[in-house]
Design a protein around this nucleic acid. Sequence first.
DNA 1: TGATTTTTGGACGTATCAGTCCATTTGACG
DNA 2: CGTCAAATGGACTGATACGTCCAAAAATCA
Lengths: 202, 202
Amino acid sequence: MPRVVGQIDQAKSEAILDAASDVLGERGLGASIEAIARRAAVSKQTIYNQFGCKTALIEALVARRVSHITAPLRVPGAAEQPIETLTALAQTLIEIVSNVRAYSLIRVTVQGAGAMPELAKAVFEAGPATTRALIADYLAAETEAGRMAVDDPMEAAEFFAGMCSGHRQFRALMGMEVKADPEQIAHLAQTVAKRFFRAYAP
Amino acid sequence: MPRVVGQIDQAKSEAILDAASDVLGERGLGASIEAIARRAAVSKQTIYNQFGCKTALIEALVARRVSHITAPLRVPGAAEQPIETLTALAQTLIEIVSNVRAYSLIRVTVQGAGAMPELAKAVFEAGPATTRALIADYLAAETEAGRMAVDDPMEAAEFFAGMCSGHRQFRALMGMEVKADPEQIAHLAQTVAKRFFRAYAP
DNA sequence: TGATTTTTGGACGTATCAGTCCATTTGACG
DNA sequence: CGTCAAATGGACTGATACGTCCAAAAATCA
């Protein structure tokens, strides 16, 4: 038998998504499909064959990325000292916020919020919302165990996440350089954990 | 003498900027000049007469808005109790973040960050950066006075501002509804102030 | 009222981009 | 090596938007 129907080149598909991520990150939503095709060393028609339209391409891109981005955020087995767990959480959050690739996606989503609100909502749910929920659950558990005193876990989770993102978020959104010195990030994570715990100690 | 040269209609100029603010907020940077002209009940040519090009229009818009947005953020005469001052600061910050008009501007800036980076930087400097600097100054003064114990005022200012914006920022950027119940805002401001002070009490 | 300038609105030129079409080439597989 | 689907690339359509031009209308002041 000859080539089977529907046997599209998976490697090319990946290359297209990678290229789309890069080009959209650089030029924003206005980036042309042709530019993406050039970057992926692929013909424009191939993109349309595989994804149908620009919106679908972006949806595929988002679907692929979102899971990668929040994957590292797992609440570790609660340590004896909440500070250690909080530090680990903060570290992960700050790394996410400092991740250029992740933020180029967010920027695209912000730009497209008007044209595709359901996508924006999906990203919000998959990203910040679940992140906060995870943190809130952890804080509630620690309070239950008497190691912290968090009266409103969701609110506290907001505060914690807000301390981590700070204006890095702004800089990243504005397309400005965000210095991501690992040593600095580690120090910042420790400080966030320390101060947050002090604010919510029993 | 007949009509003086350069005597452009100032009221129309304002109407154009208002309309631009609205339309850009709704449709994003992609909004057409014609749409803005229609909204302002003005001819497209008038916009070009007064502003020259789209970029200049947006710059004028940003220049006019930025001052309005951050104007309310003045550190009040330091009260006896830092908590009171912190609550007032938080309240103002949260109101800014909940302000739809302000955020539509931010969204436009994010969208245009690629095409006009200098504008993005200007907004960042005029907005978040000066805001943090103001807060940092206040915290340093309170520490000097022995009423707080802030070792790194800029970092602490980041935390404070981050707690205020939280994921309201995200929702606003994504174009999602941000509930701005005054009572809720007041309560949130109090909580932020209380917890922050606890984290940085002497 | 008359001189002069702004404003208007609509036509126009140019550019860009999404998405389609199609003849040709490439490459996997029997 | 022959077959058949996928990939290519280049031309094409249609839509949209920036920015320009210009003749006619409106507004301002002497």
